[in-house]
């Protein structure tokens, strides 16, 4: 367990930034966002960032390849470059779990090399929560905010940050900056961290969504929920915008498009949303004609289809972003509470 006092935090950041690109959450007009560290940048103590850290591994837009065409000939240019090492500080337990969800999607056979390369070069400093928000429900998916995973786990108390390397990648980085971050000889680190863990687990019990459970969901529930009458009332006022899917740390759907830039054709990948009307449109028709089907697809994927293909792991980490960002305040918690309750009760 290593310790760095808060007043020397900037030195620590400077040391890490000397080794590799460092990103920390910084307050902006649109809430906390990850930005590259620069001297003097103040770390935000907001609970979570508006855009999750998914962006570092599965960016919103990414060039896959380029084509040069003259006449009938085509030349394919592989634009993949080895990524530089980078570290992300302050990732919460829910976002760290979202990397596992994305890993199963992208690294399963045949692995996606763009994502894989970024994953290999990324070092995660996870930061335990001290003050969860009312929209948090990570406990429902078995995530313990007091013991996040990640390469280096950090605990922030009033005066210091205690760090513990959990993986080999983390250990290497910590060793390389060990002159700044001394081993905590005094031993008060353990007690401070345990005290904080106590506070968090106490607070987790008091959260309004603490009792939310996933028992009725799972990989084999397709038939049970597909024709549930509650979908109609749940989806009736959904606008079909992409906010919930674009702020969600575990949404993995993407679109591949070509952009003719005049000097060559770039094939890029960008986030796509199952809520959009064009998502499954094809020349032979559209299997999901109304918003009800698209709305159903999103939550069935999170609670049924993804667990069916990934031995029970849900594709939601309870971070609460969709609860606070949906324009009409419809979200996965209301869906979980209303599905299977005999449709009419849409309270």
């Amino acid at each position: 367990m290593r310790k760095i006092t808060l007043d020397r935090l900037d030195e620590f950041f400077a040391a890490v930034a000397g080794k590799l690109k460092l990103y920390i959450p910084v307050d902006t007009a649109g809430g906390a966002q990850f930005q590259q560290w620069r001297a003097g940048a103040k770390m935000s103590d907001a609970l979570n960032t508006t855009r999750s850290a998914k962006d570092f591994f599965f960016p919103q837009t990414e060039n896959l390849m380029e084509f040069k065409t003259e006449g009938k000939k085509i030349e394919i240019i592989d634009v993949r470059r080895e990524n530089e090492d980078f570290a992300i500080f302050g990732v919460r337990a829910c976002d760290v779990r979202s990397f596992d969800v994305l890993d199963r999607a992208f690294l399963s056979e045949p692995a996606d090399t763009y994502y894989q390369n970024r994953r290999e070069h990324g070092v995660i400093f996870s930061l335990a929560c001290s003050k969860p928000a009312e929209t948090c429900f990570c406990g429902t998916f078995g995530i313990d905010p007091a013991n996040p995973k990640g390469d280096i786990v950090c605990y922030k108390t009033d005066d210091a940050i205690y760090m513990e390397a959990k993986t080999e990648k983390g250990a290497n980085l910590m060793d390389s900056v060990s002159d700044i971050v001394a081993e905590d000889e005094g031993g008060d680190g353990e007690s401070a961290v345990n005290a904080q863990k106590e506070i968090i687990s106490e607070r987790m019990k008091k959260l309004p969504l603490a009792s939310l459970s996933t028992d009725k969901f799972g990989g084999d529930k397709t038939a049970k929920f597909f024709d549930d009458p509650a979908w109609k009332s749940l989806s009736e006022s959904c606008l079909g915008c992409g906010t919930c899917t674009f702020v969600c740390p575990t949404c993995q759907c993407y679109d591949i498009k070509d952009f003719n830039a005049g000097n060559g054709i770039k094939r890029f990948r960008c986030w796509d949303s199952c809520m959009y009307s064009e998502f499954t449109k094809m020349s032979a028709g559209q299997p999901r004609l109304t918003q009800l089907e698209r709305f159903r697809q999103r939550f069935m994927h999170k609670l049924v289809y993804y667990p069916a293909n990934n031995d029970g792991m849900f594709s939601c980490v309870g971070c609460g972003r969709c609860l606070s960002k949906c324009p009409i305040q419809m979200n996965i918690v209301k869906v979980m509470k209303n599905l299977g309750e005999g449709g009419e009760n849409n309270g």
Binding site: A105, F106, S108, P110, D112, G219, T222, F226, Q252, C253, Y254, D255, I256, D272, C274, F279, T280, K281, M282, A284, P287, Q297, M300, H301, V304, Y305, Y306, A308, N309
Partner: peptide
């Protein structure tokens, strides 16, 4: 079956029928 397929490798989340 014939549905809209984009990536062809089961990742882009588009051609699913159920799971």
């Amino acid at each position: 079956l014939e549905l809209r397929m984009k990536c062809g490798i089961g990742k882009c989340g588009r051609c699913n029928v159920g799971s």
